[in-house]
């Protein structure tokens, strides 16, 4: 069973199509990179796959759950790391992660384990508001994989991270994590090297799919 099956996915914003005719199949364990200029529909695609946005037309199957009908099955299976860290600024990293752990029905020992894994155990008791961008991103990554999801949706996962931190997060959300991944990035070469297949979006339409050359991808931005 493929991890993600999209056929003719459509999502409208009012009358305007934010996504139209997106069709791609991703096998379990593979990485799909989504490329495109600002406003091309990349984030919309991620939000549809996470179950946050309802698809309007087409077949969307994520880890066997048919959307939008079986949306309720997704939260246990999918981890979402978007632009917004989804952490409360006035709570500490530990408090935030514990809160999310309880929502997901995960024990507190997993929180300790992940704080260590992202190298934040020393500053885990400071409010989010006092941490740097990169540290918040590390905590957000820990938050996204608290429940050990089979599929991770990553929107610019390296934003604000130094190379050492990128290395540190690799076992959690990198290719080595064994998770199926959907990656949105503007780093064309890096993204293509880090993935098995690619989708190129332009104004919500899929213009490239499959194995994509860097030169083709660059044309998306012109």
């Amino acid at each position: 069973m493929p991890a993600i099956e999209l056929d003719g996915l459509e999502r409208r914003y009012g009358e305007r199509a934010a996504l139209a005719g997106v069709s791609v199949t991703v096998e379990a364990g593979q990485t799909l990179v989504v490329l495109g200029a600002n406003g091309a529909g990349k984030t919309t695609l991620l939000r549809v796959l996470s179950g946050l946005l309802r698809p309007h037309a087409g077949t969307v199957r994520v880890l066997g759950a048919e959307l939008p009908g079986e949306r309720w099955r997704l939260p246990r299976l999918v981890g979402y790391l978007g632009h917004d860290p989804l952490l409360y600024r006035d709570l500490t990293g530990r408090e935030n992660l514990r809160y999310h752990a309880r929502l997901h029905g995960v024990g507190d020992e997993r929180v300790t384990e992940l704080l260590e894994a992202v190298g934040m155990e020393r500053r885990a008791d400071e409010p989010i508001a006092e941490l740097s961008r990169g540290m918040v991103q590390r905590l957000a990554t820990a938050r996204a994989v608290l429940h050990d999801p089979a599929l991770v949706l990553l929107d610019e996962p390296r934003a604000g991270l130094d190379p050492a931190a990128t290395e540190l997060l690799e076992p959690l959300v990198g290719r080595g994590s064994g998770r199926t991944r959907v990656l949105v990035t503007h780093d064309i070469e890096g993204g293509l090297a880090d993935s098995d297949l690619a989708v190129g979006l332009k104004d919500g339409r899929q213009v490239l799919a499959g194995s994509v050359q860097a030169a083709e991808a660059r044309a998306l931005y012109s």
Partner: peptide, 17 residues
């Protein structure tokens, strides 16, 4: 306010809640 400004609603929708 906190849910809206700091993504709490998305977080709840992403959890089995």
């Amino acid at each position: 306010a906190a849910e809206r400004e700091q993504g709490g609603v998305d977080a709840l929708l992403l959890a089995p809640v």
